[in-house]
C-alpha cells in the first residue's frame, strides 16, 4: 500500500474537469486508488465519487493505492494536484 498526503491549492478546488483528470489518471492503473478527505473515502476511478468529496482549495487529501502500479499512480496524482492541474490541462487541451 502506498499513501501520500497533499493539500489542494488550486483556487477553484476540484470541480468537474480536474475530477475527470484525476479519474483518467487513476484508470490507467489496475490497482485500487482511493482519495480520502476527512475520513470520507472516494473511489478515484469514479468521477461522481471524486466530485462528491467537495474538495475546495485548502482541503487536505490522502491518496492511497493498493496493488500493481500503486507508487506511480500516487506520485502522478499528487504531482497533478501540486501543480494545480495545469500541466495536464494543457495536454488535455491538445488532445
Amino acid at each position: 500500500m502506498t499513501e501520500r498526503e497533499v493539500v489542494v491549492t488550486s483556487d477553484a478546488g476540484v470541480h468537474a474537469r480536474p475530477a475527470m483528470m484525476i479519474v483518467r489518471e487513476a484508470m490507467k492503473y489496475p490497482c485500487e486508488v482511493k482519495l480520502i478527505k476527512e475520513d470520507v473515502e472516494a473511489d478515484c476511478k469514479s468521477i461522481m465519487s471524486v466530485l462528491g468529496l467537495a474538495i475546495v482549495s485548502g482541503s487536505r487529501l490522502v491518496i492511497r493505492a493498493n496493488g500493481e502500479g500503486e507508487e506511480k499512480v500516487v506520485d502522478s496524482i499528487v504531482s497533478m494536484i501540486e501543480n494545480n492541474f495545469t500541466i495536464n490541462e494543457k495536454s488535455a487541451e491538445k488532445n
Binding site: 469514479s46 468521477i47 461522481m48 466530485l51 462528491g52
Partner: peptide
C-alpha cells in the same frame, strides 16, 4: 445520496 450530487449519474460515453 450526497446532497451535492443529487440525482446525478455518470454513464461512460455519455458523461454526467
Amino acid at each position: 445520496g450526497s446532497p451535492m450530487l443529487k440525482y446525478h449519474m455518470e454513464i461512460r460515453g455519455l458523461g454526467i
